[in-house]
Design a protein around this nucleic acid. Structure first.
Length: 466
RNA sequence: GGCGCCAUCGUCAAGUGGUUAAGACACCGCCCUUUCACGGCGGGUUCGUGGGUUCAAAUCCCGCUGGCGUCACCA
Protein backbone atom coordinates (compact mmCIF):
# COMPACT_ATOMS: atom_id res chain seq x y z
CA UNK A 1 0.00 0.00 0.00
CA UNK A 2 1.38 3.34 -1.03
CA UNK A 3 0.51 5.14 2.17
CA UNK A 4 2.52 2.79 4.30
CA UNK A 5 5.55 2.34 2.17
CA UNK A 6 5.77 6.07 1.77
CA UNK A 7 5.53 6.62 5.47
CA UNK A 8 8.09 3.95 6.08
CA UNK A 9 10.50 5.41 3.60
CA UNK A 10 10.09 8.84 5.05
CA UNK A 11 10.84 7.60 8.52
CA UNK A 12 13.88 5.72 7.28
CA UNK A 13 15.36 8.88 5.88
CA UNK A 14 14.51 10.98 8.90
CA UNK A 15 15.88 8.47 11.32
CA UNK A 16 19.35 9.20 10.10
CA UNK A 17 19.11 12.55 11.84
CA UNK A 18 18.45 13.24 15.47
CA UNK A 19 14.77 13.89 15.96
CA UNK A 20 14.00 17.42 17.08
CA UNK A 21 10.49 18.66 17.77
CA UNK A 22 9.23 21.93 19.12
CA UNK A 23 6.32 23.44 20.91
CA UNK A 24 5.76 26.99 19.76
CA UNK A 25 3.02 28.75 21.71
CA UNK A 26 2.31 32.42 21.71
CA UNK A 27 2.65 33.93 25.17
CA UNK A 28 -0.97 34.24 26.20
CA UNK A 29 -0.82 33.25 29.86
CA UNK A 30 -3.28 30.47 29.23
CA UNK A 31 -2.54 26.83 28.42
CA UNK A 32 -5.40 25.42 26.43
CA UNK A 33 -5.82 21.66 26.71
CA UNK A 34 -5.39 21.33 22.96
CA UNK A 35 -2.07 23.15 23.14
CA UNK A 36 -0.93 21.08 26.05
CA UNK A 37 -1.72 17.95 24.09
CA UNK A 38 0.28 19.21 21.12
CA UNK A 39 3.22 19.89 23.42
CA UNK A 40 2.82 16.45 24.97
CA UNK A 41 2.84 14.62 21.65
CA UNK A 42 5.82 16.60 20.40
CA UNK A 43 7.62 15.82 23.63
CA UNK A 44 6.69 12.15 23.66
CA UNK A 45 7.73 11.70 20.08
CA UNK A 46 11.08 13.40 20.55
CA UNK A 47 11.82 11.49 23.74
CA UNK A 48 10.67 8.17 22.34
CA UNK A 49 13.18 8.67 19.54
CA UNK A 50 15.95 9.82 21.82
CA UNK A 51 15.62 13.30 20.37
CA UNK A 52 15.28 16.87 21.58
CA UNK A 53 12.23 18.85 22.49
CA UNK A 54 12.38 22.60 22.09
CA UNK A 55 10.24 25.34 23.57
CA UNK A 56 10.02 28.41 21.38
CA UNK A 57 7.95 31.47 22.12
CA UNK A 58 6.13 32.99 19.17
CA UNK A 59 5.60 36.52 20.33
CA UNK A 60 5.71 38.37 17.04
CA UNK A 61 2.31 39.88 17.63
CA UNK A 62 3.16 42.70 19.97
CA UNK A 63 -0.48 43.51 20.61
CA UNK A 64 -0.98 40.10 22.14
CA UNK A 65 1.87 40.11 24.57
CA UNK A 66 1.03 39.13 28.13
CA UNK A 67 3.47 39.82 30.93
CA UNK A 68 5.09 36.80 32.60
CA UNK A 69 3.53 34.52 30.02
CA UNK A 70 6.83 32.82 29.29
CA UNK A 71 7.29 31.86 32.93
CA UNK A 72 3.69 30.74 33.00
CA UNK A 73 4.23 28.43 30.04
CA UNK A 74 7.42 27.02 31.49
CA UNK A 75 5.79 26.39 34.85
CA UNK A 76 2.81 24.73 33.25
CA UNK A 77 5.00 22.39 31.23
CA UNK A 78 6.93 21.57 34.36
CA UNK A 79 3.73 20.75 36.21
CA UNK A 80 2.77 18.48 33.36
CA UNK A 81 6.22 16.89 33.55
CA UNK A 82 7.15 18.02 30.07
CA UNK A 83 10.75 19.12 30.17
CA UNK A 84 12.15 21.03 27.16
CA UNK A 85 15.78 20.45 26.28
CA UNK A 86 16.06 23.98 24.96
CA UNK A 87 14.04 27.10 25.57
CA UNK A 88 13.99 30.73 26.73
CA UNK A 89 15.20 30.26 30.30
CA UNK A 90 16.93 26.97 29.59
CA UNK A 91 19.16 28.07 26.78
CA UNK A 92 20.58 25.89 24.03
CA UNK A 93 22.70 26.01 20.92
CA UNK A 94 20.10 27.86 18.92
CA UNK A 95 19.24 30.69 21.30
CA UNK A 96 17.46 33.00 21.51
CA UNK A 97 14.21 31.04 21.71
CA UNK A 98 11.95 34.04 21.84
CA UNK A 99 11.07 35.28 18.38
CA UNK A 100 10.94 38.96 19.22
CA UNK A 101 14.63 38.63 20.06
CA UNK A 102 15.36 37.20 16.63
CA UNK A 103 14.03 40.13 14.67
CA UNK A 104 17.25 40.77 12.79
CA UNK A 105 17.47 37.19 11.64
CA UNK A 106 14.10 37.32 9.92
CA UNK A 107 14.91 40.65 8.36
CA UNK A 108 18.03 39.22 6.80
CA UNK A 109 16.20 36.27 5.29
CA UNK A 110 13.29 38.39 4.08
CA UNK A 111 15.67 40.70 2.30
CA UNK A 112 17.42 37.76 0.74
CA UNK A 113 14.08 36.66 -0.66
CA UNK A 114 13.47 40.11 -2.11
CA UNK A 115 16.90 40.04 -3.69
CA UNK A 116 16.15 36.71 -5.32
CA UNK A 117 12.79 37.94 -6.55
CA UNK A 118 10.76 35.62 -4.31
CA UNK A 119 9.35 38.54 -2.36
CA UNK A 120 8.79 42.28 -2.71
CA UNK A 121 8.41 45.44 -0.71
CA UNK A 122 5.00 46.92 -0.27
CA UNK A 123 4.34 50.36 1.02
CA UNK A 124 1.19 51.37 2.82
CA UNK A 125 0.18 53.95 5.40
CA UNK A 126 1.62 51.64 8.07
CA UNK A 127 5.05 51.69 6.51
CA UNK A 128 6.98 49.16 4.48
CA UNK A 129 6.25 45.46 4.60
CA UNK A 130 7.60 42.49 2.67
CA UNK A 131 5.34 40.10 0.84
CA UNK A 132 6.02 36.60 -0.39
CA UNK A 133 5.45 36.02 -4.11
CA UNK A 134 3.21 33.06 -4.84
CA UNK A 135 3.28 31.13 -8.10
CA UNK A 136 0.28 32.00 -10.25
CA UNK A 137 -0.26 28.46 -11.45
CA UNK A 138 0.59 24.90 -10.62
CA UNK A 139 0.15 23.29 -7.24
CA UNK A 140 2.10 22.69 -4.09
CA UNK A 141 2.12 19.37 -2.26
CA UNK A 142 3.56 18.11 0.93
CA UNK A 143 3.56 14.88 2.81
CA UNK A 144 1.86 14.61 6.17
CA UNK A 145 2.44 11.53 8.31
CA UNK A 146 -1.20 11.37 9.32
CA UNK A 147 -2.92 12.52 6.16
CA UNK A 148 -0.61 11.40 3.42
CA UNK A 149 -0.04 13.72 0.49
CA UNK A 150 -1.90 17.00 0.56
CA UNK A 151 -2.03 19.16 -2.52
CA UNK A 152 -3.31 22.68 -2.84
CA UNK A 153 -3.54 24.73 -6.04
CA UNK A 154 -1.19 27.69 -6.01
CA UNK A 155 -3.95 30.00 -7.15
CA UNK A 156 -5.50 29.50 -3.71
CA UNK A 157 -2.48 31.12 -2.19
CA UNK A 158 -2.22 34.86 -1.75
CA UNK A 159 0.97 36.83 -1.52
CA UNK A 160 1.72 36.58 2.18
CA UNK A 161 3.12 39.24 4.42
CA UNK A 162 6.51 37.98 5.56
CA UNK A 163 7.75 40.97 7.44
CA UNK A 164 5.25 43.36 8.96
CA UNK A 165 5.74 47.10 8.78
CA UNK A 166 6.78 47.08 12.43
CA UNK A 167 9.70 44.90 11.45
CA UNK A 168 8.30 41.77 13.06
CA UNK A 169 7.85 38.65 11.00
CA UNK A 170 4.49 36.95 10.62
CA UNK A 171 3.95 33.46 11.97
CA UNK A 172 4.05 32.03 8.49
CA UNK A 173 7.53 33.36 7.96
CA UNK A 174 9.11 33.10 11.37
CA UNK A 175 8.17 29.48 11.96
CA UNK A 176 9.85 28.42 8.72
CA UNK A 177 13.04 30.32 9.42
CA UNK A 178 13.23 29.08 13.00
CA UNK A 179 12.32 25.50 12.31
CA UNK A 180 15.07 25.35 9.76
CA UNK A 181 17.65 27.20 11.82
CA UNK A 182 16.81 25.21 14.93
CA UNK A 183 17.04 21.99 12.93
CA UNK A 184 13.53 20.86 13.72
CA UNK A 185 12.90 17.55 11.98
CA UNK A 186 9.23 16.98 12.76
CA UNK A 187 6.64 19.69 12.91
CA UNK A 188 3.79 18.62 15.15
CA UNK A 189 0.94 21.12 15.30
CA UNK A 190 -2.82 21.45 14.90
CA UNK A 191 -4.82 20.87 11.69
CA UNK A 192 -5.61 24.56 11.49
CA UNK A 193 -2.19 24.91 9.91
CA UNK A 194 -2.74 22.45 7.10
CA UNK A 195 -3.95 25.02 4.64
CA UNK A 196 -1.10 27.40 5.31
CA UNK A 197 1.53 24.71 5.04
CA UNK A 198 1.91 25.09 1.24
CA UNK A 199 3.04 28.67 1.84
CA UNK A 200 5.69 27.35 4.19
CA UNK A 201 6.68 24.66 1.73
CA UNK A 202 7.19 27.28 -0.96
CA UNK A 203 9.43 29.19 1.41
CA UNK A 204 11.54 26.09 2.01
CA UNK A 205 11.82 25.75 -1.75
CA UNK A 206 12.79 29.39 -2.23
CA UNK A 207 15.59 28.94 0.27
CA UNK A 208 16.44 25.50 -1.05
CA UNK A 209 16.08 24.05 2.42
CA UNK A 210 15.21 20.48 3.26
CA UNK A 211 11.58 19.98 4.17
CA UNK A 212 10.77 18.74 7.67
CA UNK A 213 8.18 16.04 8.28
CA UNK A 214 4.70 17.37 8.96
CA UNK A 215 2.24 15.93 11.42
CA UNK A 216 -1.03 17.82 11.71
CA UNK A 217 -3.04 16.85 14.75
CA UNK A 218 -6.83 16.67 14.85
CA UNK A 219 -8.42 19.18 17.20
CA UNK A 220 -9.78 18.60 20.69
CA UNK A 221 -13.50 19.25 20.77
CA UNK A 222 -15.88 20.09 23.55
CA UNK A 223 -19.48 19.11 24.03
CA UNK A 224 -21.93 21.89 24.83
CA UNK A 225 -24.98 21.44 27.02
CA UNK A 226 -27.24 21.21 24.00
CA UNK A 227 -25.19 18.26 22.79
CA UNK A 228 -23.46 20.06 19.97
CA UNK A 229 -19.77 19.53 19.46
CA UNK A 230 -17.25 22.18 18.54
CA UNK A 231 -13.62 22.99 19.11
CA UNK A 232 -13.00 23.04 22.85
CA UNK A 233 -13.50 26.56 24.15
CA UNK A 234 -14.60 28.51 27.18
CA UNK A 235 -18.25 27.73 26.56
CA UNK A 236 -17.44 24.15 27.51
CA UNK A 237 -16.29 25.14 30.97
CA UNK A 238 -12.73 24.65 32.09
CA UNK A 239 -10.49 24.36 29.06
CA UNK A 240 -7.04 25.08 30.32
CA UNK A 241 -4.62 22.89 32.15
CA UNK A 242 -4.55 25.44 34.95
CA UNK A 243 -8.34 25.42 35.32
CA UNK A 244 -8.30 21.68 35.71
CA UNK A 245 -5.53 21.76 38.27
CA UNK A 246 -7.40 24.41 40.22
CA UNK A 247 -10.45 22.18 40.24
CA UNK A 248 -8.44 19.55 42.00
CA UNK A 249 -7.41 17.16 39.29
CA UNK A 250 -3.93 15.74 39.62
CA UNK A 251 -1.59 17.05 36.89
CA UNK A 252 -0.51 13.47 36.20
CA UNK A 253 -4.09 12.38 35.69
CA UNK A 254 -4.80 15.27 33.35
CA UNK A 255 -1.71 14.55 31.29
CA UNK A 256 -2.54 10.87 31.15
CA UNK A 257 -6.09 11.57 30.04
CA UNK A 258 -5.06 14.13 27.47
CA UNK A 259 -2.48 11.74 26.03
CA UNK A 260 -5.27 9.33 25.22
CA UNK A 261 -7.40 12.00 23.59
CA UNK A 262 -6.42 11.41 20.01
CA UNK A 263 -3.79 8.80 20.52
CA UNK A 264 -3.88 5.14 21.47
CA UNK A 265 -1.07 2.74 22.24
CA UNK A 266 -0.71 -0.28 19.98
CA UNK A 267 -1.28 -3.83 21.16
CA UNK A 268 -2.46 -3.04 24.65
CA UNK A 269 -5.56 -1.99 26.53
CA UNK A 270 -3.60 -0.25 29.23
CA UNK A 271 -4.87 3.23 29.99
CA UNK A 272 -3.02 4.35 33.07
CA UNK A 273 0.45 5.45 32.09
CA UNK A 274 3.25 7.25 33.85
CA UNK A 275 5.20 9.75 31.77
CA UNK A 276 8.05 7.26 31.42
CA UNK A 277 5.68 4.61 30.20
CA UNK A 278 4.16 7.02 27.70
CA UNK A 279 7.58 7.86 26.33
CA UNK A 280 8.36 4.20 25.99
CA UNK A 281 5.18 3.25 24.20
CA UNK A 282 4.45 6.36 22.15
CA UNK A 283 4.36 6.07 18.39
CA UNK A 284 3.03 8.25 15.60
CA UNK A 285 1.00 5.34 14.26
CA UNK A 286 -1.32 5.54 17.25
CA UNK A 287 -2.33 9.09 16.42
CA UNK A 288 -5.91 9.58 15.34
CA UNK A 289 -6.83 11.85 12.45
CA UNK A 290 -10.35 12.58 13.51
CA UNK A 291 -11.27 15.04 16.27
CA UNK A 292 -11.70 13.85 19.84
CA UNK A 293 -14.30 15.12 22.30
CA UNK A 294 -13.07 16.02 25.74
CA UNK A 295 -15.02 13.86 28.19
CA UNK A 296 -15.19 14.81 31.84
CA UNK A 297 -16.63 11.43 32.80
CA UNK A 298 -13.54 9.68 31.60
CA UNK A 299 -11.24 12.25 33.16
CA UNK A 300 -13.09 11.78 36.44
CA UNK A 301 -12.65 8.05 36.30
CA UNK A 302 -8.97 8.37 35.54
CA UNK A 303 -8.49 10.92 38.28
CA UNK A 304 -10.13 8.52 40.73
CA UNK A 305 -7.78 5.77 39.61
CA UNK A 306 -4.83 7.98 40.43
CA UNK A 307 -6.24 8.79 43.84
CA UNK A 308 -6.77 5.16 44.69
CA UNK A 309 -3.18 4.39 43.77
CA UNK A 310 -1.78 7.10 46.03
CA UNK A 311 -0.68 6.32 49.56
CA UNK A 312 -2.66 8.02 52.33
CA UNK A 313 0.30 10.26 52.98
CA UNK A 314 0.66 11.33 49.36
CA UNK A 315 -3.03 11.93 49.02
CA UNK A 316 -3.34 13.97 52.17
CA UNK A 317 -0.35 16.05 51.26
CA UNK A 318 -1.72 16.91 47.84
CA UNK A 319 -5.24 17.42 49.10
CA UNK A 320 -4.34 19.78 51.90
CA UNK A 321 -4.10 22.77 49.60
CA UNK A 322 -7.76 22.36 48.88
CA UNK A 323 -9.19 22.17 52.38
CA UNK A 324 -9.66 24.20 55.52
CA UNK A 325 -9.52 22.05 58.64
CA UNK A 326 -9.64 22.52 62.38
CA UNK A 327 -6.86 21.36 64.62
CA UNK A 328 -8.44 18.02 65.39
CA UNK A 329 -9.06 17.08 61.77
CA UNK A 330 -5.72 18.39 60.72
CA UNK A 331 -4.14 15.88 63.06
CA UNK A 332 -6.20 13.03 61.71
CA UNK A 333 -6.04 14.06 58.08
CA UNK A 334 -3.92 11.17 56.87
CA UNK A 335 -6.54 8.83 58.26
CA UNK A 336 -9.32 10.93 56.76
CA UNK A 337 -7.48 10.72 53.44
CA UNK A 338 -7.76 6.94 53.49
CA UNK A 339 -11.52 7.35 53.68
CA UNK A 340 -11.70 10.07 51.04
CA UNK A 341 -9.47 8.46 48.44
CA UNK A 342 -12.02 6.09 47.00
CA UNK A 343 -14.91 8.51 47.21
CA UNK A 344 -13.83 11.60 45.35
CA UNK A 345 -12.53 12.39 41.96
CA UNK A 346 -11.35 15.96 42.49
CA UNK A 347 -9.72 17.55 45.50
CA UNK A 348 -12.22 20.37 45.51
CA UNK A 349 -14.95 17.90 46.47
CA UNK A 350 -13.37 17.24 49.83
CA UNK A 351 -14.41 20.34 51.71
CA UNK A 352 -18.08 19.76 51.17
CA UNK A 353 -17.92 16.09 51.99
CA UNK A 354 -16.21 16.66 55.32
CA UNK A 355 -17.98 19.86 56.32
CA UNK A 356 -20.26 17.92 58.70
CA UNK A 357 -17.21 16.95 60.72
CA UNK A 358 -16.37 20.59 61.27
CA UNK A 359 -19.89 21.71 62.06
CA UNK A 360 -22.86 19.60 63.03
CA UNK A 361 -25.57 20.11 60.40
CA UNK A 362 -29.04 21.12 61.48
CA UNK A 363 -31.18 18.44 63.12
CA UNK A 364 -33.54 16.63 60.78
CA UNK A 365 -35.65 13.84 62.24
CA UNK A 366 -36.54 12.53 58.78
CA UNK A 367 -33.01 11.27 58.34
CA UNK A 368 -33.49 8.74 61.11
CA UNK A 369 -36.28 7.02 59.31
CA UNK A 370 -34.86 4.29 57.10
CA UNK A 371 -37.07 1.65 55.61
CA UNK A 372 -34.43 -0.73 54.39
CA UNK A 373 -32.82 -0.95 57.81
CA UNK A 374 -36.16 -0.88 59.58
CA UNK A 375 -35.37 2.24 61.54
CA UNK A 376 -37.99 4.63 62.94
CA UNK A 377 -37.84 7.57 65.33
CA UNK A 378 -38.89 5.35 68.23
CA UNK A 379 -36.41 2.70 67.30
CA UNK A 380 -33.69 5.31 67.10
CA UNK A 381 -34.37 6.49 70.65
CA UNK A 382 -34.44 2.90 71.80
CA UNK A 383 -31.03 2.23 70.28
CA UNK A 384 -29.35 5.54 70.95
CA UNK A 385 -30.10 5.63 74.67
CA UNK A 386 -28.09 2.57 75.67
CA UNK A 387 -25.54 3.19 72.91
CA UNK A 388 -24.75 6.54 74.39
CA UNK A 389 -24.12 5.00 77.79
CA UNK A 390 -21.97 2.28 76.29
CA UNK A 391 -19.82 4.75 74.37
CA UNK A 392 -19.57 7.05 77.33
CA UNK A 393 -17.87 4.32 79.28
CA UNK A 394 -15.08 3.96 76.80
CA UNK A 395 -11.96 5.61 77.99
CA UNK A 396 -10.66 8.58 76.05
CA UNK A 397 -7.41 6.77 75.30
CA UNK A 398 -9.28 3.76 73.92
CA UNK A 399 -11.17 5.90 71.46
CA UNK A 400 -9.65 4.19 68.42
CA UNK A 401 -11.26 2.82 65.30
CA UNK A 402 -10.29 -0.68 66.22
CA UNK A 403 -11.59 -0.53 69.75
CA UNK A 404 -14.75 1.32 68.79
CA UNK A 405 -15.43 -1.34 66.22
CA UNK A 406 -15.10 -4.04 68.79
CA UNK A 407 -17.33 -2.32 71.35
CA UNK A 408 -20.02 -1.44 68.85
CA UNK A 409 -20.09 -4.96 67.45
CA UNK A 410 -20.55 -6.34 70.92
CA UNK A 411 -23.27 -3.82 71.58
CA UNK A 412 -25.01 -4.67 68.33
CA UNK A 413 -24.94 -8.35 69.17
CA UNK A 414 -26.47 -7.67 72.56
CA UNK A 415 -29.41 -5.87 71.00
CA UNK A 416 -30.36 -8.87 68.85
CA UNK A 417 -30.99 -6.38 66.06
CA UNK A 418 -29.59 -6.34 62.56
CA UNK A 419 -26.31 -4.55 62.14
CA UNK A 420 -27.75 -1.99 59.79
CA UNK A 421 -30.58 -1.20 62.17
CA UNK A 422 -28.17 -0.24 64.90
CA UNK A 423 -25.61 1.50 62.74
CA UNK A 424 -28.02 3.75 60.93
CA UNK A 425 -29.32 5.88 63.80
CA UNK A 426 -25.88 5.94 65.36
CA UNK A 427 -24.32 7.38 62.26
CA UNK A 428 -27.12 9.84 61.63
CA UNK A 429 -27.07 11.07 65.22
CA UNK A 430 -23.48 12.26 64.94
CA UNK A 431 -23.37 13.30 61.29
CA UNK A 432 -26.87 14.30 60.20
CA UNK A 433 -25.85 13.10 56.77
CA UNK A 434 -27.31 10.26 54.79
CA UNK A 435 -24.01 9.79 53.05
CA UNK A 436 -20.68 10.09 54.81
CA UNK A 437 -17.10 9.14 54.08
CA UNK A 438 -16.79 6.11 56.30
CA UNK A 439 -19.18 4.47 58.74
CA UNK A 440 -20.05 5.07 62.38
CA UNK A 441 -16.77 4.00 63.92
CA UNK A 442 -14.73 6.06 61.50
CA UNK A 443 -16.78 9.15 62.21
CA UNK A 444 -16.74 8.60 65.95
CA UNK A 445 -13.00 8.40 65.81
CA UNK A 446 -12.64 11.48 63.63
CA UNK A 447 -14.94 13.51 65.84
CA UNK A 448 -13.32 12.41 69.08
CA UNK A 449 -15.12 11.21 72.17
CA UNK A 450 -16.28 14.53 73.53
CA UNK A 451 -17.65 15.93 70.31
CA UNK A 452 -19.25 12.63 69.32
CA UNK A 453 -21.11 12.22 72.57
CA UNK A 454 -22.24 15.83 72.62
CA UNK A 455 -23.70 15.39 69.16
CA UNK A 456 -25.35 12.13 70.05
CA UNK A 457 -26.86 13.53 73.22
CA UNK A 458 -28.21 16.52 71.39
CA UNK A 459 -29.75 14.35 68.69
CA UNK A 460 -31.27 12.08 71.29
CA UNK A 461 -32.81 15.05 73.08
CA UNK A 462 -34.17 16.39 69.86
CA UNK A 463 -35.67 13.04 68.98
CA UNK A 464 -37.37 12.76 72.34
CA UNK A 465 -38.92 16.17 72.10
CA UNK A 466 -40.67 15.46 68.84
C1' G B 1 -18.89 30.54 -0.96
C1' G B 2 -13.74 28.53 -2.86
C1' C B 3 -10.19 25.25 -1.06
C1' G B 4 -8.66 21.54 2.45
C1' C B 5 -9.28 17.86 6.39
C1' C B 6 -12.37 14.29 8.85
C1' A B 7 -16.43 10.27 9.42
C1' U B 8 -16.81 2.60 13.95
C1' C B 9 -21.28 2.50 20.37
C1' G B 10 -23.54 8.74 23.89
C1' U B 11 -17.72 9.54 24.54
C1' C B 12 -12.37 7.68 23.90
C1' A B 13 -11.32 3.82 20.58
C1' A B 14 -9.27 -1.40 18.42
C1' G B 15 -9.77 -2.78 13.39
C1' U B 16 -5.71 -2.19 7.47
C1' G B 17 -10.87 -7.56 2.54
C1' G B 18 -13.18 -13.14 5.55
C1' U B 19 -13.78 -11.09 13.39
C1' U B 20 -19.59 -13.57 17.35
C1' A B 21 -16.94 -5.65 15.17
C1' A B 22 -11.98 -5.81 21.01
C1' G B 23 -11.33 -2.80 25.37
C1' A B 24 -12.34 1.63 28.49
C1' C B 25 -15.71 5.66 30.38
C1' A B 26 -20.81 6.56 31.11
C1' C B 27 -25.54 3.95 31.76
C1' C B 28 -28.62 -0.38 33.69
C1' G B 29 -29.04 -4.93 36.73
C1' C B 30 -27.13 -8.38 40.41
C1' C B 31 -23.56 -9.71 44.40
C1' C B 32 -20.64 -7.91 48.57
C1' U B 33 -21.65 -4.33 52.49
C1' U B 34 -21.96 -0.39 58.75
C1' U B 35 -24.53 4.62 54.69
C1' C B 36 -21.89 6.19 50.26
C1' A B 37 -17.93 4.36 47.91
C1' C B 38 -14.40 0.41 46.71
C1' G B 39 -14.44 -4.52 44.69
C1' G B 40 -16.76 -8.73 41.80
C1' C B 41 -20.21 -10.50 37.96
C1' G B 42 -23.52 -9.59 33.93
C1' G B 43 -26.27 -6.43 30.15
C1' G B 44 -27.91 -3.10 26.11
C1' U B 45 -26.43 0.27 22.18
C1' U B 46 -21.96 1.13 16.88
C1' C B 47 -19.58 0.77 11.22
C1' G B 48 -23.69 8.44 8.31
C1' U B 49 -25.81 7.51 3.20
C1' G B 50 -26.04 5.89 -2.07
C1' G B 51 -23.40 3.58 -5.74
C1' G B 52 -19.43 0.60 -7.38
C1' U B 53 -14.85 -3.17 -7.17
C1' U B 54 -14.79 -8.27 -5.13
C1' C B 55 -16.61 -15.00 -4.13
C1' A B 56 -16.34 -11.67 0.27
C1' A B 57 -16.29 -4.56 2.39
C1' A B 58 -16.35 -1.16 8.72
C1' U B 59 -11.94 -1.93 5.73
C1' C B 60 -10.58 -0.24 -1.44
C1' C B 61 -12.86 3.59 -5.25
C1' C B 62 -16.59 7.48 -6.49
C1' G B 63 -20.81 10.63 -5.31
C1' C B 64 -23.83 12.64 -1.40
C1' U B 65 -24.58 14.27 3.48
C1' G B 66 -22.71 16.06 7.88
C1' G B 67 -18.85 18.08 11.07
C1' C B 68 -14.42 20.86 11.39
C1' G B 69 -10.65 24.09 9.54
C1' U B 70 -8.80 27.99 6.33
C1' C B 71 -9.04 32.11 3.10
C1' A B 72 -5.17 38.72 8.31
C1' C B 73 0.63 43.46 8.59
C1' C B 74 -3.15 36.74 14.53
C1' A B 75 -0.70 32.66 15.80
Amino acid sequence: MLYHSEKFLRNEVKNLKKVRTRFAPSPTGYMHIGNLRTALYAYLFAKSQGGDFILRIEDTDRARYVADAVEFIENTLKLAKIYPDEGPNIGGNFAPYVQSERKEIYKKYAEQLVKNDFAYYEESENGVAIRQKMPKSGETSFYDVLHGNITIANEELEDQILLKSDGMPTYNFANVIDDHLMEVTHIIRGTEFITSTPKHVLLYQYFDWELPTFIHLAPVMGKAEDGTVSKLSKRHGATSFGDLVDMGYLPEAITNYVALLGWNPKNTNQEIFSMDELIKIFSLEGLSKSPAVFDYDKLNWMSGEYFKKMSDEEFSKAAKNFVKLDENLNEKFVYLASLLKTRIVRFDEIQESIQFLLNMPEFDSELFINKRNKVTIEKSIEILTPAFEMLNEIDEKDWTVENLNEKISAFTASTQLKVGTVMWPLRISISMKKVTPGGVTEILYLLGKKNSLERMKQSLDNLKSI
